[in-house]
Amino acid sequence: MSVAFSLPDARWRAAEIAFWIATGLVFFVFPSHLVLASQVLITGLFAVSLDLVLGYAGIVSLGHAAMFGTGAYVAGILARNGWGEPLSGLFAAGLAAAAVAFVTSFLALRGEDLTRLMVTLGISLLLYEAANQAGVWTGGVDGLSDMQVRDLFGVFPFDIRGRTAYLYTLAVVFLVFCAARRVVHSPFGLSLRGIRESPRRMAAIGSPVQRRLVVVYTLAGAMAGIAGALLAQTTQFVGLEVLGFSRSADLLIMLVLGGAGWLYGGLVGAALFLVAQSLLSRLNPVYWEFWLGLLIVLVVLLARGGINGALTRVSARLGLARRQA
């Protein structure tokens, strides 16, 4: 019996390498759709951050937009007030979102699932209202524009066709994804899965469950903040909806459609969701919402053993996540 047989192997698989090469090829194959492609990557990164919380640690959140929006506003406000250097803006946004996640984690992680749902939702709504009221800083309902994002590395300007934006986004998303991948394959990642499977047993083998959850919530918050900042910098606009309930709900849906618990689900789900949305909304936005709702209802009803059960099977079959005998 070989040791590697049943442990998740951290090596890059061929399918993963092909996936990332494909995202690079998008730049050449769909030069006129780079704006949408950037959105997909950004939303995908946002979904990956939720995957750490939901897919790995098993915490259902209805307010993940709180951290995304924080990142977006921090990057936007910095760029509007003369700090237009993108990389440091990204860094500051990630820090701010991590701080929000860290502080709110002590509220959000208490209690049971229903309380958690309500508290995460409540926190994101609080931030939404705060952004709405702080119009001087955020532009309120009109949104935040007139951002001056400087050239990347002082060399590459953000062009109207979104070429720089796409490559910048791709590079950042890839690096953050690698970090998430590292987390997942580390002992810490295994302990998160332990918590998802049985918090009670984790406590019984000596794990400080609450502390682990605070750490992953903060990490995921930083990632979500970076995603938000990318959106702000590449679109040069931040609207209130970055903090809205729909953003959190849509995110949950994307992650579930793509599959939670194997990291790539977030990216795949975001791609499916946004491409379908852009195609179907052109027909009629109302229809899109209806079919989306129907799709989720059917997925939940038909998935054997619920969403969680279906995901375990899918990820096992793809061989990308844990390998199962």
Partner: peptide, 16 residues
């Protein structure tokens, strides 16, 4: 991992 206090580690990989 929990016993040895490395279960919070992000430095290494489980498989190693």
């Amino acid at each position: 991992f929990e016993r040895k206090g490395i279960a919070a580690s992000l430095q290494t990989r489980v498989a190693n």
